[in-house]
Amino acid sequence: MLRDITLGQYYPIDSVLHRMDPRTKLFGTMAYIVSLFIADSLPVYAAAALFLVIAIRMSKVPVKFMVRGLKSIVILLLISVSFNLFLTPGTTIFKIGFLQMTWEGVEFAALMAVRLIFLVLGSTILTLTTTPNQLTDGLEKSLGFLGKVGVPVHEVSMMMSIALRFIPILIEETDKIMKAQMARGADFETGNLIQKAKAMVPLLVPLFISAFRRATDLAMAMEARCYRGGDGRTKMKPLRYENRDRVAYAVCFVYLAAVIGMKIIL
């Protein structure tokens, strides 16, 4: 089940989007999210859909792979759709008890679903085309100004990148420890809340111990490879804007302006 989550996963191929500067992609994603939030009419949605389709095509990531990522939000989607479907006042279609479905509800729910799907797909494109390291590099550089006021930007981004590296390892480890304890008769499923919480101890203690051991090892390995913080460090993949980034910025600005324009005019 955890394997199905494509959100936050990198898809290793070569495309224009893959090569684009992470800062550009971060900006593009932000612009896109903003456009979705101000979207309230069909033309705007159409523009957003067009933007999305072009981005997906440019990323060269198979659509199938991307759609698989939507599985993880199905429940969230169903909840928000049914809320909107039944709780929006307006012209009633039919009524069961206090629940009534309205035309406005249908329209609102549909738009809501589209908005959510667009949102997830849009941010998935960012993570599918950007390695977590590039992403943290991008954030580090974009938020670099915070360093001047004492925020340890380099350290935080290094921590994020290490966390991303170790999440899959720890998930696998959780599964292993869980099975090992189940082989000793542990029961993680039945019982009330307190019993369930207590049952977690044999899982969490070994997991924490393992995480600390890994942290110690990793710190040693980093030191052995001359790591001493951000000072004097060079970059293998330094962030440099290319022409494609300038074009992308322009496109994003035009798109944002168009969306805002439509919102005002329509």
Binding site: E173, K176, A180, A183, R184, G185, D187, P206
Partner: peptide
């Protein structure tokens, strides 16, 4: 399954990682 697991004991690889 509980009875089965007590009859068929399974010691995992690096079993010391399960001590708590």
């Amino acid at each position: 399954m509980k009875t089965l697991r007590s009859k068929v004991g399974l010691v995992f690889q690096y079993p010391e990682h399960q001590l708590f």
